[in-house]
């Protein structure tokens, strides 16, 4: 652990806080993924890990390696950007797949298609 000892305290503390924040949020997201009752609720859980969970760890890594290498190392931020752009794609597709499957099976958890004449304020329990 010699490389970690060379980091000054004012860099180490924010890096440690960001790491704990990021991994803690990711863990909470997966706890939600296991505990929440319905699929549409569970769809929200991973976004904890993909928003500030990823951002915290990626920022910590960028700060730490910029200090260790004595040059600007920000390629970790690209992972953050990449996760930021791809997560909406995967979650939207999964949400639409779930809606589609629920509608085909006629489960009343799914709202009717947007074209159907219904009450716009409708919501389901």
């Amino acid at each position: 652990m010699s490389h970690l000892d060379s980091v000054p305290l004012w860099v180490a503390i924010p890096v440690a806080l960001l790491i704990v924040l990021g991994s803690g949020l990711t863990l909470l997201g997966t706890i939600g993924l296991v505990r929440l009752p319905s699929f549409y609720d569970r769809l929200h859980a991973p976004t904890l890990g993909t928003s500030w969970g990823t951002l915290g760890i990626v920022l910590a890594s960028a700060i730490l390696f910029t200090w260790l290498e004595k040059r600007l190392v920000i390629h970790e931020l690209l992972i953050g950007l990449f996760v930021m752009i791809t997560t909406p794609v995967t979650l939207m597709l999964l949400g639409r797949a779930a809606l589609h499957r629920d509608r085909i099976e006629g489960l009343d958890a799914a709202p009717p298609p947007a074209g159907a004449p219904d009450n716009p304020d409708e919501q389901l329990p």
């Binding site: 970690l4 890096v15 440690a16 990711t26 997966t30 993924l33 760890i57």
Partner: peptide, 28 residues
């Protein structure tokens, strides 16, 4: 000192993320 703080934070993160992976696996 800073090495201890960082080692602790990184150890916590490794355990938390491994646990998170296990929970995601449970959902699979």
């Amino acid at each position: 000192m800073s090495g201890t703080i960082l080692a602790f934070a990184l150890g916590f993160a490794q355990i938390a993320l491994a646990l998170a992976g296990a929970l995601a696996g449970l959902r699979i």
